[in-house]
Design a protein around this nucleic acid. Structure first.
Length: 852
RNA sequence: GCGGGCGUGAUGGAAUGGUAGACAUAUCGGACUUAAAAUCCGAAGGGCUUAGUCCCGUGUGGGUUCGAGUCCCACCGCCCGCACCA
């Protein structure tokens, strides 16, 4: 008896698919199209199990859609620009491009081992000049339409390395290489005007019914629409040419509880005061030592500084409030200035207690107003509360009513305006780095900022750069910056900032529809292939990547690169969970800084490093990441068990949307199961046994049930349940006494059902049992509805919700018959113990509940 | 800190508001074997002076319902995102 030998069959069937060109995407007007896309990988160099999970999911969908008669587009590419390539360049003295290319080659080789249904003819990397040329062309189009502008913005600045740091490179406020305290620095940078689309991006979320609810919610909260009041506090004495401070508040109804006016350290007034007052300058400098991330700002200790300035309360000219600079006020949101109401906002209260600022007692409450101690009363928005004192004349109202009334009052009185405020900020795309798409503009002394001419694209990255000095090599390249001004021809300088890598990934899905075109897209191709019918990727991209892509599609539509119907480019989204793994460091290692060991370097049982014997610390599982070395090498699993085992394993057990911790034990089991399927098929090849009609019918029923359940599982993205049903079906076939013909038929159906998950084994079984052509080209099986209906059903009988018996009834039994049968059960009578049922609930086909 | 999610046997998990624990892993027992591996068959949530279609059981505490793992409220724990990681 031959044994399943993946090393032999997997390359054989991969070659057969290649020869038949089954995965080449071809526009076919006669077929419905289906575009399935997994988020393309960053070429880190090695495939990890998370990739295997992600791409197998997409492959299952793609193969299923091929089987159900669709023209399928299932492409693959590389998100190839980014920081790690530059880090590798610094660490290994290797050019980022060479490092990236090398990684792509090795990852592509690993991809090919998996037997994925990819159309490699459409492959590109975002660092290909052909790709970024089109991206530069889009940039110029966007500029022309006013979708891009420049303004000053802050970056993390490492004062020792004299370089800009990503948030990721700032650890506990220090630069990751230098260890120097990071400062904030202002630079002039490029921005996409995504905030112009806040309302549109928010309201269109309602139409994305095939997106996970949680992603839509997260995006809605990220966009953060809020209604509020904008108004000014007049300064009692003008300071630095300013005579009032504009504030925005979502709770204007708490204005009578105002305690102070706060401004951001980056507020123009604060900056003006800095120049005059060294103490303020010192305070603002201290605030700027906090990282730029919102998390760092929010978690930082709340600090304030009294400017000594006073403002008048808009409702009472005799009421003066102090003006403070506070580190928790963001210049990017609203006007960069607030008023604080300690009685009704916890953060304001904490701040007032800390700096001994006045706290006005509560003026609205659920019941009776209680004096404010150290807990603020946050008035609910939708519940009615009593108003002890309210200037808009309300006695009792919900928060929302109160806000509306207050805004109306302020507008009528003329001292404020109701405004809609969004949290969403414009997308800063400038990066002071080499390994990214060059921003195609030129700075000319005479003409200013001028876009490069399209015929001069791409603006190519120079190859001759070095990374021995920190900073952007483009800045110090001897010749690359020098270029004639595209407008006047005078000598000018190129922009040296490159684009955020999110730009690269914001339109690649559209490029896959015509990857070689001399324009960003081609009308017929986007018309046929767009939108992406199913997009699959990690939930960590739920906000930024997906929001930017939605913006980009709108911008591309405005510039004529996408049709109206593609402004929401992703029809259905599935966010898969991450694959996690324990982290290994030396006993004195740090879970953030490492150093880290690869799983294969350590002996978990003994708790030591294999080579050095040094004791290790095991840190609970987190997302797999190359930098933390908590990765598992899929290639080792493939060479031990084959790709089908790896694929089967990642599809089984865990629901796709949930995180899964990698454990080695499952692979062995998956391999055993596939061997069993193969063995069952092999034993049936020449089986001429006969069987009873009853056994045949039972097997046919089980087959139909399995077809239905596996199909439902794939349709509903519950691959783990499809796998479970296939396990159960294997047990059924193994035990079946039906004839050889019947069992062969069942196994051919098994092959078709397993094909999306374990395509190589499926082909082998299909061929062995006389299936025609390739199973990948075979139509998806259909369940005979007649075989799905059971003649009799088993109903549990409950008494007061507790199961006491079960009855077997015909599927179309009447309610009366069911009631009678249920009450007639000994167990039921015994449990009733003479009590008379008050009520009988019969749910046909489901349950009987006797209420006493 | 803010936003979002998750929580079920030893383990991964299953379960349109309707028999909780399907299917698998690990474990234990049996068959085959000189033996082992492989394979096949079977047991198994916890508890018990009553072994019963008995009691308890889906993070904790409440609630809605004839009926709650599922819906609602509060809490606890873990995970993700927070705009320059991709």
């Amino acid at each position: 008896m031959s044994k399943l030998n993946p090393a032999e069959i997997e390359p054989k069937w991969q070659a057969a698919w290649d020869a038949a060109q089954v995965f080449k995407a071809v526009r076919d007007p006669a077929k419905p199209k289906y575009y399935v896309l997994e988020m393309f990988p960053y070429p880190s160099g090695k495939l990890h199990i998370g990739h295997v999970r992600n791409y197998t999911m997409g492959d299952v969908v793609a193969r299923y859609k091929i089987a159900t008669g669709h023209a399928v587009l299932h492409p693959m590419g590389w998100d190839a620009f980014g920081l790690p390539a530059e880090n590798a360049a610094i660490d290994n003295n290797l050019h980022p491009g060479a490092w990236t290319r090398q990684n792509i080659d090795s990852m592509k080789r690993q991809f090919n081992l998996l037997g994925l249904s990819l159309d490699w003819s459409r492959e590109f990397a975002t660092c290909d000049p052909d790709y970024y040329a089109q991206q530069q062309s889009l940039f110029i189009d966007f500029m022309e339409k006013g979708l891009i502008y420049r303004k000053d913005a802050v970056v993390n600045w490492d004062p020792v390395d004299m370089t800009v740091l990503a948030n990721e490179q700032v650890i506990d406020g220090k630069g990751w290489r230098s260890g120097a305290t990071v400062e904030r620095k202002e630079l002039t940078q490029w921005f996409f005007k995504i905030s112009d689309y806040s309302e549109e991006l928010l309201s269109a979320l309602d139409g994305l019914t095939n997106w996970p609810e949680k992603v839509r919610l997260m995006q809605a909260n990220w966009i953060g629409k809020s209604q509020g009041l904008r108004f000014g506090f007049d300064l009692t004495t003008p300071a630095s040419d300013m005579d009032r401070i504009e504030v925005f508040t979502t709770r204007p109804d708490t204005l009578l509880g105002a305690s102070f006016v706060g401004i951001s350290p980056d507020h123009p007034l604060a900056k003006a005061l800095e120049a005059e007052n060294p103490d303020i300058a010192a305070f603002c400098a201290e605030c700027r030592k906090t990282g730029t991330s919102e998390e760092a700002m929010e978690k930082a200790e709340k600090l304030g500084f009294d400017t000594g300035l006073k403002v008048r309360h808009p409702l009472d000219p005799n009421w003066e409030l102090p003006v403070w600079i506070a580190n928790f006020i963001l210049m990017d949101y609203g006007t960069g200035a607030i008023f604080a109401c300690p009685a009704h906002d916890q953060r304001d209260l904490d701040f007032c207690r800390k700096y001994d600022l006045p706290v006005i007692d509560t003026f609205f409450a659920m019941d009776d107003p209680a004096p404010v101690a150290n807990e603020a009363f946050v008035p609910p928005k939708t519940e009615k509360v009593k108003w002890v004192n309210h200037f808009a004349g309300l006695e009792e109202a919900t928060g929302l009513e109160a806000i509306d009334a207050t805004v109306a009052f302020a507008e009528k009185a003329g001292w404020g305006t109701g405004v809609t405020q969004f949290r969403l900020r414009d997308w800063g795309l400038s990066r002071q780095r080499y390994w990214g798409c060059p921003i195609p503009v030129v700075h000319c002394e005479k003409c200013g900022v001028v876009p490069e001419k399209k015929e001069n694209l791409p603006v190519k990255l120079p190859e001759d750069v070095s990374f021995d000095i920190p900073g952007n090599p483009l800045d110090r390249h001897p010749t690359w910056r020098d270029t004639p001004c595209p407008a006047c021809g005078a000598p000018a300088k190129r922009e040296t900032d490159t684009m955020d890598t999110f730009v690269d990934s914001s339109w690649y899905f559209a490029r896959f529809t015509a990857p070689d075109a001399p324009t960003p897209t081609v009308a017929e191709d986007v018309a046929y292939w767009m939108n992406v019918d199913q997009y699959i990727g990690g939930v960590e991209h739920a906000i930024l990547h997906l929001l930017y892509s939605r913006f980009f599609a709108r911008a591309m539509h405005i510039c004529g690169h996408l049709p109206e119907g593609a402004i929401e480019p992703i029809d259905a989204l599935f966010t898969q969970g991450m694959v996690t793994h324990a982290l290994f460091t030396p006993a004195d290692g740090d879970e953030k800084r490492g150093p880290f060991f690869f799983p294969e370097e350590v002996d978990i049982e003994a708790g030591v490093h294999r080579e050095t014997g040094q004791p290790i610390k095991i840190i609970p599982p987190i997302k797999m990441s190359k930098s933390k070395k908590n990765v598992v090498d899929p290639e080792a699993i493939i060479s031990a068990y084959g790709a089908d085992t790896a694929r089967w394993f990642v599809m089984s057990d865990s629901p796709p949307e949930r995180d899964v911790e990698w454990t080695a034990s499952g692979a062995e089991a998956a391999f055993k199961h596939l061997g069993r399927v193969y063995r069952i098929a092999a034993e049936l090849v020449d089986n001429t046994s006969s069987g009873t009609e009853e056994d045949a019918l039972a097997l046919r029923r089980a087959t139909a049930r399995t077809v239905q359940d596996v199909t439902d599982g794939i349709d509903g993205f519950q691959f783990n349940t499809s796998v479970a049903k296939l396990y159960a079906f294997t047990n059924t076939v193994a035990k079946s006494k039906a004839s050889g013909d019947e069992r062969r038929e069942a196994m051919r159906t098994m092959a078709r059902l397993m094909q999306p998950m374990t395509p190589h084994l499926a082909e082998e079984v299909w061929a062995m049992l006389g299936g025609e052509d390739l199973v990948v080209q075979a139509p998806w099986p259909k369940a005979d509805p007649a075989l799905l209906v059971e003649d009799t059903v088993t109903l549990p009988v409950q008494i007061n919700g507790k199961r006491r018996a079960e009855i077997s009834v015909a599927k179309d039994a009447s309610k009366e018959a069911i009631e009678e049968l249920a009450l007639g059960q000994d167990a039921v009578q015994k449990a009733l113990n003479g009590a008379v049922p008050k009520k009988l609930i019969v749910v046909p086909g489901r349950i009987v509940n006797v209420v006493v």
